[in-house]
Amino acid sequence: MTAGDVEVAARAARAAAGALVALRGCGLGGRPLGDAGDAAAQEAIVAVLTAERPDDVVFSEEAVDDRRRLAASRVWIVDPLDGTREYGEEDRHDWAVHVALWSSGELTAAAVALPGLGELLLTDPAPRLPARADGPVRIAVSRSRPPPSPMRSPRRSAPSSCRWGRPATRPSRWPAARSTPTCTPVACTSGTPPRRWPSPGPPG
């Protein structure tokens, strides 16, 4: 029985997640671990997609651009390790694996693996939004690209901010998103009503 596209995305994301978790226990750290993680996750994803969807094109942040994607009707858009810097830092979990399928002009299947949290988000079933937390609004901002000026709330109360790695600050609803790490959040939340997400945890 041929696996559906969402299942293939899930298998690819799980394979990369497994490779990344195993590699993190091999004694490397910092940039060397990040570089090794990029390569290992890329290899794991390509192995799954080559076996399951040999006729499709793969467009990856960690590979030479395959120009066939410009005319192809099916393109897998992947970021094998989003948050390379965080992955190389001990005890951080804000890094992810992104696998999305662009088919006939639409994002049709995707998986986002969060190996540090043991989670996998899929297009189907769409992820459920958590309940709104009590207390002041907390806004997750990029730790490497924080906003240059203080943030203001329409309620005139100063929101607090927590700095996270790239995966935690991706837009969850951005219809024009076409870059490799934003395709998967858009596809996975395509069936979920947009809403303000609470902070994923304490600031890093």
Rank of each mutant, 00 (worst) to 15 (best):
28 L>Q: 01
93 H>I: 13
158 A>V: 14
47 A>I: 08
19 A>G: 03
21 V>Q: 00
83 G>P: 02
114 L>Y: 11
100 A>W: 01
4 G>H: 06
44 A>N: 02
195 R>I: 05
127 P>R: 13
103 S>K: 06
101 L>Q: 01
191 G>W: 03
12 A>L: 04
34 G>Q: 00
111 A>V: 12
74 R>P: 03
191 G>L: 13
142 S>E: 10
141 V>L: 06
63 A>M: 11
86 E>D: 10
156 R>V: 09
183 C>I: 11
41 A>K: 02
19 A>Y: 00
21 V>F: 02
112 V>D: 06
25 G>F: 01
165 G>P: 01
141 V>N: 01
45 I>Y: 01
50 T>N: 08
51 A>R: 13
3 A>E: 03
54 P>H: 06
37 G>H: 00
38 D>I: 00
94 D>H: 03
122 L>N: 08
96 A>N: 08
36 A>E: 05
91 D>T: 11
154 P>S: 14
188 C>S: 09
98 H>N: 13
6 V>Q: 08
151 M>I: 15
171 P>G: 11
25 G>D: 01
70 L>V: 14
52 E>R: 10
160 S>D: 09
57 V>W: 05
42 Q>R: 07
192 T>Y: 04
156 R>Y: 10
124 D>K: 15
164 W>L: 04
3 A>C: 06
79 D>T: 08
50 T>L: 05
127 P>Y: 10
157 S>A: 09
62 E>R: 09
36 A>K: 09
87 Y>V: 02
24 R>P: 01
43 E>F: 05
159 P>D: 09
53 R>I: 08
74 R>Y: 06
59 F>M: 12
153 S>T: 09
147 P>V: 05
96 A>Y: 07
91 D>M: 10
74 R>M: 07
25 G>A: 02
174 W>Q: 14
110 A>W: 01
174 W>H: 13
26 C>R: 12
120 L>E: 10
8 V>W: 05
164 W>D: 04
57 V>Y: 03
201 G>A: 12
22 A>I: 00
185 P>E: 11
66 D>E: 02
3 A>K: 12
136 P>I: 14
39 A>L: 10
145 R>T: 09
177 A>R: 03
119 E>Y: 07
86 E>T: 09
187 A>S: 09
8 V>Q: 04
2 T>E: 10
144 S>A: 14
84 T>S: 10
6 V>P: 06
69 R>C: 08
24 R>V: 02
149 S>T: 15
180 T>N: 15
106 E>M: 14
